[in-house]
Write a protein that binds this DNA or RNA. Structure first.
Lengths: 230, 230
DNA sequence: CTCATGCAAGAGCAGTGCTCTCGAATGTGT
DNA sequence: ACACATTCGAGAGCACTGCTCTTGCATGAG
């Protein structure tokens, strides 16, 4: 019953956007609006359920797509697979993507359930970093970028101490032994991935880039370079 | 009169988020709701006015901050100034930032007015690219990233043809002669800037990074490296 | 002095989230 | 088999929303 309500709500979400109407979904189900409250305490409660489902849906897509990469040593290919999975899911479910990675619903506070579901997707990326670090494919000890001038010093400044400490704490939790420098570049790729998808999905690329897919792949390759993947 | 309405609406926006109520702003002004319709045809019309204002506000902040960089040859400093200006404005006006760079309001179609205001901010970044290209500080002819392995080939693949054509068209409009390769890396920095601000503002960094300002600067430095700024 | 225009108030419509009450149906224990 | 308890949905109702339409009051122009 609650899955049926969520299904109808998802359908409304796809057409009407984030301001879905409880009465409308009740009408679609041949019920009266007050009956919904037997299953969801409030509209925010329904939204929370949809948000958790969305986080898990994108995590499912990312996990299965990344696992399908046969050559586990092809770290770049695995990163690319993650990126394409996120983008593909976002393009197929724009409203749900906006729900979890867009501007937060005003007055709505995300409960703790959502963060654990959100972590699933990130873990897939971190595993690539771990594998690359173990095999020695990553070189966090030197700047990844070229010197702006051939004879100049590396432009890449050191990781700020406070950031390094934050990242070390994160690494201790999910990837013990992973150097903060590696994690720092991984988070940059991570942030850029969602920044790129959001930019495209929210219309910021309109009248600028039309070759969306090629452009996205290009960005992911740049991020792979930045992380230091072969 | 319309500026007073917008001021009150902005204040409501800051507290209640994107779903602002016409009746509430009318109440705050001691008017009845129908009186608002003398000045704005609809709630969407008011939102559009706020959006255009927001685009211009962030453009003002960026332009003035960037212009305050004394050393015009310090391209990295100018990029950093832009980034900090955007982030600072976003942190000071989170609701307005979400209005223009967050998920679009459902059922709302942005009119053409907004795009020209959005272009103002981008122009400041493009000017850095132009200056850097003129002075020879940018080297778009070679990969900016290090080889993953010291003796391997450059990992950076070529710019896809379709993307190159898109970017050439953009360059023809606002920066004639600027190589698409330079613009490609500039857009990456551009996208990452807003991706980083959105990630922080929308709570995606919670329980991960606490040293927000240091982390942001670190990201901007990485982007400066990627673009190839000294 | 008259007319026209600008402006705000009020009523009203359809819609919303949410609460409360009531009646019907479905088991469950004795 | 009967009485009881629990579950479920319907309905009314409250306060709120965006928006439309009409009415009336001003102020300024001719």
């Amino acid at each position: 019953m609650i899955v049926e309500i969520k299904d109808v709500a998802r359908r409304h979400l796809a057409t009407d956007g984030a301001n879905l109407s409880l009465r409308a979904v009740a009408r679609d189900m041949g019920m009266v609006s007050s009956a919904i409250y037997r299953y969801f305490a409030s509209r925010d409660d329904l939204l929370t359920a949809l948000i958790v489902d969305a986080y898990n849906a994108v995590a499912d897509a990312v996990e299965s797509t990344e696992a399908a990469v046969a050559d586990r040593d092809d770290l770049r290919g695995r990163l690319l697979a993650i990126g394409r999975a996120v983008r593909g899911w976002a393009l197929a479910n724009p409203a749900e993507y906006a729900l979890i990675y867009g501007s937060p619903v005003p007055g709505y506070q995300a409960p703790q359930d959502t963060t654990v579901a959100a972590l699933r997707t990130a873990t897939v990326l971190v595993q690539i970093l771990i594998d690359g670090h173990r095999s020695g494919a990553l070189r966090p000890d030197r700047p990844l970028t070229d010197r702006p001038h051939p004879d100049g010093p590396p432009a890449d400044g050191p990781l700020p101490d406070a950031v390094r400490d934050d990242l070390r704490a994160v690494a201790d939790g999910i990837a013990p032994g992973l150097p903060p420098q590696v994690l720092a570049r991984g988070t940059i790729a991570w942030i850029h991935l969602f920044g790129a998808v959001s930019f495209e999905l929210f219309g910021q690329l309109n009248n600028v880039i039309e070759a969306r897919e090629d452009y996205f792949d290009y960005q992911m390759h740049q991020m792979a370079d930045l992380v230091g993947l072969a």
